[in-house]
Design a protein around this nucleic acid. Structure first.
Length: 376
RNA sequence: GGGGAGAUACCAAAGCGGCCAACUGGGGCAGACUGUAAAUCUGCUGUCUUAUGACUUCGUAGGUUCGAAUCCUGCUCUCCCCA
């Protein structure tokens, strides 16, 4: 997997690049829609490609392992074929579930014992098994198995957690070397930087992962309860240490403002459930600010969903109709909102890239941030 | 014509002498959501700009009682069954 750094902004750490995968080239900075169970919730592949113009999507190891099960995906010929997407796929390792399934999971040196959130059955994830599952899923980018340390972890916990993540990383790397891709395309493993909000831990973590040759590097354990100031500070600590000529992926982030701030600090790749989940829950992101579509003031606003938007849905439907759908709990409401939000997120990173290439990123970003935070 | 049941807040529906401004659903209004246990969750929803406060409510008019949405009587209306 080759990454080409095309342009480095002058008064910002922002970069524009190209990441070539076995399923297509990704232009960075990029936002990757999340498709936990193999599908970006509520979005057809056609809309994903043509309307939203997604270049890579996520899947989740834990969720796909539980349902439909690794065997089915292998029998299908990998996730690319199974879900009909065909483009690049990144799979999260289940490290986030170590965090989010706190009550029904137990960590040991060996790995993480989960109880299925579906039927309560017990499963063990190890760095090795997680690599094996991701081989079978066929992800272009596989994530190392980590502990996503909570944002409020104390220093002692964060340190021990980081050390566990580091030992797990070594095991992931070993397992990568022992195994091969199953479907004829290259698979890359991205290590993950942890260390909570502690500068020295983040530094150590960044140095550790940088010592391991990889096609890209991820920053994890952010947007998990810490302040935004801490999040930005940690990005600033980590990015100068990570290899310059490899893509950097900030996991799970974030709001449109978060993304622009992180691009400004040298991040290339993002994923987040916000555009889809918040969309389903009636929130729209636009370049002029945030819309809570359920608010009464939209009830008789027959203007387009987003006059500035790039998506078909932005101009085809009115705010009043979309509000009606969402209030009525109609499936289409969630679909339209998700499609709009994803199209907006992809527009945002595409425009950021364009501004980087014409050396106007910083000024553009400052202006955008003012608008994006507004509530309409 | 005969017999029976019932009228509670925007809707539905509990409550059947004090713990009732009134359970619970729905609806309404607002908020949350960041590598998805989420088409989910949380508030508020009689009036008084704030309230452990005041005031006005449970078809309607009276009555009993220290005290009534709850008991009694009249009236009005609704529904069901048999003709």
């Amino acid at each position: 997997m080759d990454f080409t750094l095309q342009h480095q902004a002058v008064n910002s750490q922002a970069r524009a690049g190209m990441l070539e995968t076995g399923h297509g080239t990704i232009e960075t900075p990029i936002f990757m829609p999340v498709g936990t169970a193999g599908s970006v919730k509520g979005i057809h592949v056609k809309e994903l490609k043509d309307d939203i113009q997604a270049q890579i999507i996520l899947g989740n190891t834990y969720h796909l392992y539980l349902r439909p099960g690794t065997d089915i995906i292998e029998e299908a010929g990998g996730l690319h074929k199974f879900n009909g997407w065909g483009g690049p796929i990144l799979t999260d390792s289940g490290g986030y579930q170590v965090f989010s399934l706190g009550d029904i999971r137990k960590l040991t040196e060996e790995g993480a014992k989960f109880q299925s959130h579906i039927d309560g059955s017990r499963h063990l994830f190890t760095p090795e098994s997680v690599i094996d599952v991701q081989r079978k899923i066929g992800a272009d980018i596989m994530m190392a198995f980590d502990e996503c340390t909570p944002g409020d972890a104390d220093y002692d916990y964060a340190k021990k957690s980081l050390e566990l993540t580091q030992r797990w990383l070594e095991r992931c790397v070993n397992q990568m070397e022992k195994t091969k891709p199953l479907y004829g395309h290259r698979q890359s493993l991205f290590p993950i930087v942890q260390g909570a909000v502690y500068t020295d831990l983040r530094e150590a973590a960044a140095k550790h992962v940088s010592s391991i040759p990889s096609d890209g590097y991820a920053i994890g354990g952010l947007s998990v309860g810490e302040s935004e100031a801490d999040m930005y500070a940690m990005i600033e600590v980590v990015n100068p240490i990570l290899p310059q000529n490899k893509p950097r992926y900030l996991m799970g982030v974030g709001t449109p403002i978060n993304i622009l701030e992180a691009i400004d600090r040298g991040v290339d790749m993002f994923d987040c459930v916000m555009p889809t989940r918040n969309g389903r829950n009636g929130m729209l992101f636009t370049k002029r600010g945030i819309i809570n579509m359920r608010n009464k003031k939209w009830a008789n606003d027959f203007s387009p969903v987003d006059a500035d938007g790039t998506s078909f849905v932005d101009h085809h439907y009115s705010k009043a109709f979309l509000r009606h759908l969402i209030i009525s709990n109609e499936m289409l409401g969630a679909q339209i909102a998700s499609q709009h939000n994803l199209a907006f997120y992809l527009w945002l990173v595409k425009e950021a890239r364009r501004q980087i290439l014409v050396d106007n990123f910083k000024a553009w970003k400052e202006e955008m941030v003012q608008q994006l935070g507004k509530r309409l």
